[in-house]
Computed example of a mutant assay.
Amino acid sequence: MDIHNMPGPIDPEEVARAHQADLAAQGIHGVDYQHYWVDPAGGRIFCLVSAPDPETAAQVHREAHGLVADSIYEVVEGA
């Protein structure tokens, strides 16, 4: 799960476009950006991603749109 802390309010349509760019770029890296959530007023974006490692997940964001996450956490699905 990655977290982007943006400097102000977020336009959800811009985030949707960035997510589509991730989807277009992810395949060559073995990454799967599965879902994202937006906190428009709080300026935060959360991305659920399956990737070989955090660096590769960040590389897809970097190549797709340049908005690299501030933090990346390994998470596991709860029972």
Results as ranks from 00 to 15, higher is better:
residue 1 M to C: 05
residue 2 D to M: 15
residue 2 D to V: 08
residue 3 I to F: 12
residue 3 I to M: 09
residue 4 H to S: 10
residue 4 H to Y: 14
residue 5 N to V: 11
residue 6 M to I: 06
residue 6 M to W: 15
residue 8 G to E: 07
residue 8 G to D: 10
residue 8 G to Q: 06
residue 9 P to S: 12
residue 10 I to C: 01
residue 10 I to V: 10
residue 11 D to R: 09
residue 12 P to L: 03
residue 12 P to M: 06
residue 13 E to F: 07
residue 13 E to D: 15
residue 13 E to T: 10
residue 13 E to V: 11
residue 14 E to A: 10
residue 14 E to V: 12
residue 15 V to S: 01
residue 15 V to T: 14
residue 16 A to G: 11
residue 16 A to R: 13
residue 17 R to C: 02
residue 17 R to I: 08
residue 18 A to H: 06
residue 18 A to K: 13
residue 19 H to N: 13
residue 20 Q to N: 09
residue 20 Q to C: 06
residue 20 Q to G: 11
residue 21 A to F: 01
residue 22 D to A: 02
residue 22 D to K: 06
residue 22 D to I: 05
residue 22 D to P: 01
residue 23 L to M: 10
residue 24 A to F: 03
residue 25 A to F: 03
residue 26 Q to S: 04
residue 26 Q to G: 00
residue 27 G to V: 04
residue 28 I to Q: 14
residue 28 I to W: 08
residue 29 H to E: 07
residue 29 H to G: 02
residue 30 G to F: 05
residue 31 V to Y: 02
residue 32 D to T: 14
residue 32 D to S: 11
residue 32 D to K: 15
residue 34 Q to K: 11
residue 34 Q to F: 02
residue 35 H to E: 11
residue 37 W to T: 00
residue 38 V to M: 04
residue 38 V to A: 04
residue 39 D to Y: 09
residue 39 D to T: 07
residue 39 D to K: 05
residue 41 A to Y: 10
residue 41 A to M: 09
residue 42 G to Q: 09
residue 42 G to W: 09
residue 44 R to Y: 05
residue 45 I to W: 00
residue 46 F to G: 00
residue 46 F to D: 03
residue 46 F to S: 05
residue 47 C to Q: 03
residue 47 C to D: 15
residue 47 C to R: 09
residue 49 V to R: 00
residue 49 V to L: 01
residue 50 S to P: 01
residue 50 S to M: 13
residue 51 A to W: 04
residue 51 A to Q: 02
residue 51 A to M: 00
residue 51 A to R: 01
residue 52 P to D: 04
residue 53 D to C: 06
residue 53 D to W: 08
residue 54 P to A: 10
residue 55 E to C: 07
residue 55 E to S: 10
residue 55 E to H: 08
residue 56 T to R: 08
residue 56 T to F: 07
residue 57 A to P: 06
residue 58 A to L: 07
residue 58 A to G: 06
residue 60 V to H: 06
residue 60 V to Y: 03
residue 60 V to G: 07
residue 61 H to E: 13
residue 61 H to I: 00
residue 61 H to G: 04
residue 62 R to I: 03
residue 63 E to R: 07
residue 63 E to D: 15
residue 64 A to T: 05
residue 64 A to W: 01
residue 64 A to N: 04
residue 66 G to Q: 02
residue 66 G to M: 02
residue 68 V to N: 05
residue 68 V to M: 05
residue 69 A to F: 02
residue 69 A to Q: 12
residue 69 A to Y: 06
residue 69 A to H: 11
residue 70 D to M: 08
residue 73 Y to F: 13
residue 73 Y to M: 09
residue 73 Y to Q: 14
residue 74 E to Q: 10
residue 74 E to I: 07
residue 74 E to P: 09
residue 74 E to D: 15
residue 75 V to I: 12
residue 75 V to K: 08
residue 75 V to N: 02
residue 77 E to S: 13
residue 77 E to M: 08
residue 78 G to S: 14
residue 78 G to M: 13
